[in-house]
Amino acid sequence: MPDIITLFTIEQIVQNREHVSAVELNDVTFGYGDTVAVEGVSLSVEEGEFLGILGPNGSGKTTLLHLMIGLKQPNRGVVRLFGQRAAEFEDGERVGYVAQRATDRGDAMPISVRETVLMGRFPHAGHSRIGGEDRAAVERALDRVGITDLADRPIDRLSGGQRQRTFIARALAAEADLLALDEPTVGVDVDSRTAFYDLLDELNAEGMTIVLIEHDVDILTTHVDTVACLNRRLYHHGDTASFLESDAIEEAYGRRSGVLDHHV
């Protein structure tokens, strides 16, 4: 019995002393049947970091993002979210996730902007009633992304950029610490796209940890501070400057890819 207590306290001390990353992947492998989608990836995302995931189509970017936030369990290796195993992570409100083309959902389903943002409070509220504090958080979030005047509109009457802001507001209302975005600006016009990335920069400057997938190398490298270049395995993981100097993109996309001529 005393041994167990000693072990426990030692582990606690180690944990306390250890610095906790927002996301930590240790030799993670995931496959669909016989097809390996992500192989031997180790990387960590520190709190306050802005990580961009880059890679050709079918390179496992979405799978990697899903592994990071616990939507998928690795076949091998360990994923930790804020120090806890991702599969056992329970603070749902700490992660705000916007799936690929998530914003299309409002096309057929009538739902207002405010209702969508209020969903961010659902993990806080559970089965109890939505209270004044929840409503206040929603109004703050709407105001922060600048869509207060659109709050009562149905989502299908918004532009692509406005919809993305709605989803970001949902994460803000949840008081999320980590934003996970899968190709957020697909179908968004160029101006709104720039404005959207500026918003992400601001949120990041305020301390929000952001992980996003983006296929456009130029816009990605302008905004993020770390790049993970993936094609099943990790070709590069480091700050944006080191990525731009490296050959990672040629290697990941394959040397004869047309994408290269444009960017190198």
Partner: peptide, 22 residues
């Protein structure tokens, strides 16, 4: 009435609801 929030969340955005650990 009791599960309105949960039903709405999974109906609108099932993956985000999973991430929110519903």
């Amino acid at each position: 009435v009791v599960n309105y929030k949960q039903f709405l969340f999974i109906t609108f955005d099932e993956q985000a609801a999973r991430v929110a650990r519903l």
